[in-house]
Write a protein that binds this DNA or RNA. Structure first.
Lengths: 267, 267
DNA sequence: CCAGCTTTGTGAACGTGTGCACGAGTGCCT
DNA sequence: AGGCACTCGTGCACACGTTCACAAAGCTGG
């Protein structure tokens, strides 16, 4: 079992699922499970088994036909592919409500993303300690990024300050940004940006709720008793959702978060 | 301009972008902009103009050729389509670090998702007030959901408690869930689930950082001076990323968040 | 060593999403 | 009134992602 070089260029959709597999596999490893089939992994991840196999095939052929995948080895391979063989220190811009919560959330460091620093424009916040890290002034950003070799920045500022925060991060040398502010950041193409937007997520749910209401009304008018057992036993069946999109010349509007609707383990 | 019934069944990818357009359009409306072209909107949203037009066409043909779209009317239509014509009260399960931040974040209510209640299992937390809402015991969940007509639940518990929280929400009558815990929730197919997972987002960024490091190393070996102006002036060009995925029989592993890389307004 | 069972790896079909290119309206200016 | 510049709406081709279905491969028992 040489560290055979995996076929490169993993599809984005797969990259987005690898972390999920990784978490599940790590849990399995802790429970002393040594081998796992694509079927079982798919069940736990709430996806199709073929998808699991195809996803894993991008890492190389590390399964054993008739048996399954060796959990420990798969964990190693995924970690390697995701670049999790070493820590990625992050710097948080904005020590407000969200910044505090992020810093306080220990899961950051545990998962390989130690908080190298938190900065804020407000001198009043500088010096306070959040999650074991002292808040520093934003002017020290470059110094922190450089001395701690930070590649990933987190924008946790109010909306109005987000663009400025992003620009400062880029100037400081950060090459990836996780943006919590509800704005489309304007940064050089070479910078990787991911957005987490609560409002967007809720609005997507709202759309489905609204849709559910509309269609059920229509059905009760057109069909029989509104709300009774439907054709397939499932009433509000909005069913699958997933996501879509791919290449395209950039654009932070790509997609929302992860949609779902399924029942992995416990059927 | 009758309230012409829009063609139904809007693609998920479009649904995920509508909230972004909505925010931008609302901003434009505040700046007294009355009309906007697909080109301008695309620029602000960081997407392709054709995509904007196609997305908006799903709402019906509300543009005027040669002119553009009437901002106010578009705002109205998108809000209508997303079901934002009325509030959607949400209930938060888990008054820990995250639950507190969510409750404290005013943007919730402002954007049409007032916090109808926060519950926690810990009796010690019951009674404390977060963001103007008193924390109540989780046993009161059903009562809250029913009396306040809550359709959307937010899981902000520790990982271990998430599945139980989800089940309680479902039993209480909630039909959509926004999950912040890093687990794949097991719920009936009829329940719409969206996941927001920090670790996943960071790991995706990590993947790209790692990739960037690897490829640039390769390039510096194969090509010229490592890091000098590349073929196209852009060095670490990871370029577009976007997302992918769509139908599929459920599966919360669909995708991560919104990826990006672009520069909307300020070119 | 062979038969039979299991599970991987993947070719191919299908569905979805994106972006170009252009026809079709609309408003403005002369 | 006519021409021109502009912008929408959309057909089409292409790219990407998902799923099926099956051959290949490995294990087990006799």
């Amino acid at each position: 079992m040489p560290t055979e070089r995996p076929r490169r260029r993993i599809p984005e959709a797969t990259v987005a699922r690898l972390p999920v597999y990784l978490r599940i596999l790590s849990e399995q490893a802790e429970e002393e499970v040594e081998s796992i089939s694509s079927d079982r992994l798919a069940e736990l991840a709430g996806v199709n088994a073929a998808k699991v196999r195809k996803d894993l095939s991008y890492l190389g052929s590390y399964g054993t036909r008739g048996v399954g995948y060796e959990v420990a080895y798969l964990v190693y391979q995924i970690r390697r592919e995701l670049g999790l063989t070493h820590d990625w220190p992050v710097v948080i811009v904005g020590a407000g409500n969200l910044g505090q919560a992020l810093a306080g959330y220990g899961g950051f460091g545990e998962r390989g993303f130690p908080v190298a620093g938190i900065v804020d424009v407000d001198p009043g916040k500088v010096g306070t300690v959040l999650g074991g890290v002292r808040v520093r002034h934003i002017d020290e950003l470059s110094q922190i990024v450089q001395s701690k070799r930070v590649n990933i920045g987190v924008v946790a500022t109010p909306t109005a300050a987000a663009q400025d925060a992003a620009e400062r991060l880029v100037r400081a040398g950060v090459t990836s940004i996780l943006n919590f502010a509800p704005v489309v950041l304007s940064v050089p193409r070479s910078i990787e940006v991911r957005k987490v937007d609560l409002a967007v997520e809720l609005q997507i749910l709202s759309y489905h709720e609204q849709r559910r209401a509309t269609t059920s009304t229509l059905r009760s008018v057109a069909g029989g008793i509104g709300g009774g057992p439907g054709t397939n036993g499932q009433v509000g069946q909005v069913g699958q959702v997933g996501q879509g999109g791919q290449g395209g010349q950039g654009g932070q509007v790509g997609l929302g978060g992860t949609a779902a609707t399924s029942r992995p383990a416990s059927a």
